[in-house]
Structures are given as C-alpha cells and as structure tokens.
C-alpha cells in the first residue's frame, strides 16, 4: 500500500505519504484523502523520494478541497526531495495549505 495512516490523538490525523509518488500512487492517494475528508489533516511528506505531476495534482486538489471545506490542511516534515520536486514543478510552498511547509 502506498499510503499509510498513523493516528496521533494528541494533535490531528496524519496521512503519511509513501516514497514513490508516481502514476500508480495517484489513485490510492486520492482515495486516502477522500476517506479523510471532513476533518482536519496533516500530511507527512518525510519519506517522499519522488513526486510526479499526477500526485502533485492530487495534493493540490486535496489542499483546495480542505480549504473549500474550511478545514485546516498542512504538510509536515517535508523531505528535501519533496521540497526540490515542488520547486521544480513550480509550486510555491504556501500553495499546499495555509500552514505552509514546516520542516
């Protein structure tokens, strides 16, 4: 499974991104987000080694969806590869959730 969950009762639900976010990871990732819709969410990007265009679409869509739902959405612990990929793909850090990217 490319997507795993870790419940952290002290803060908010965390969605942990898998290492390789290629075409195969896009649909499971979208499904995982849809399952979590309706509650605040933190996305853990610590393990990400590779981020492709389609998974970026899912992440952006999720961020927009959470914003539309007026719920907090944040990315935490981004790996260097994840930040590099965002820069390469021309997406500023604050486009993914109002909390920005905290290291």
């Amino acid at each position: 499974m490319p997507v795993g969950f870790t419940s952290n009762p002290r803060i908010v639900p965390v969605l942990e991104l898998s290492e390789v976010l290629d075409i195969k990871a896009a649909a499971p990732l979208a499904a995982a987000f849809l399952e979590r819709r309706g509650a605040e969410i933190l996305v853990d990007a610590a393990r990400v080694e590779k981020l492709g265009g389609q998974c970026l679409q899912v992440l952006l869509s999720a961020a927009f969806t959470w914003k539309a739902d007026e719920l907090p959405f944040g990315i935490v612990e981004p790996s260097a590869a994840f930040l590099d990929a965002l820069a390469l793909l021309g997406v500023p850090a604050d486009a993914l959730g109002d909390q920005g990217l905290a290291r």
Binding site: A26, A30, T65, L89
Partner: peptide
Amino acid sequence: ITCDTSDVPLLSELDPEGSCLSW
C-alpha cells in the same frame, strides 16, 4: 517555472490519472 493550477478540481471531481496542470 510557474505551475498553473487553475484547472485542478476538487477531489470529488479529480481523475487521479488525468492531467489538469500546465506550466
């Protein structure tokens, strides 16, 4: 590089293996 995200729909309408970004 600037990513145009204006065609990205909400999750419920997103085709995960589609293409909605342009640069």
